[in-house]
């Protein structure tokens, strides 16, 4: 049984919307290199709609696939619609992720929301927000095993 679903593998191998938008209206960069994932999402906004979206991700298969999926889900959507997309919805659209990946590498929707926040902050003259560090996983492996 493969670790990842076919959809995850498809998005990992053929990631949609990889790259960078020059003069993006909003950028959401989220993660922590120590944990292994950094996602950066760029958006171009027109009439409150996400006209274009691109990403760059440093991370595992799940991190790349969720980044790719979230860009596909929100392209052309209104900001309001995009804000409603959750990390869980992204995972679901990929036919699920292995449990261990659910909380560590499933941050693409958060990164997107951060990009929208950044867009709004810039409009109010308060941006850009810059990279937001997610906390490290501090569980001791031994304790983790005991909980399991």
């Amino acid at each position: 049984m493969p670790v990842y679903s076919e959809k995850v593998m498809d998005h990992f191998q053929n990631p949609r919307n990889v790259g960078e938008i020059e003069n993006a209206d909003g950028v959401g960069e989220l993660g922590n290199p120590t944990c292994g994932d950094i996602m950066k999402i760029y958006i171009k906004v027109k009439d409150d709609k996400i006209e274009d979206v691109k990403f760059k991700t440093f991370g595992c298969g799940a991190a790349i696939a969720t980044s790719s999926m979230v860009t596909e889900l929100v392209k052309g959507k209104t900001l309001e619609e995009a804000e409603k997309i959750s990390n869980e919805a992204v995972a679901e659209a990929l036919d699920g992720l292995p449990p261990v990946k659910m909380h560590c590498s499933n941050l693409a929707a958060d990164a997107l929301h951060l990009a929208i926040e950044d867009y709004k902050a810039r409009k109010e003259g308060k941006g850009p927000i810059g990279r937001v560090e997610t906390p490290e996983h501090d569980e001791d492996e031994h304790d983790l095993l005991e909980q399991a």
Partner: peptide
Amino acid sequence: EGESMLMWLNNNGIMVASGSACTSKILK
């Protein structure tokens, strides 16, 4: 990141391992 490297190499028929957090199953 190691796991994505591992997965691409796997695509090419090469099986390797990694000591990255993502491959560790304990995220460290």
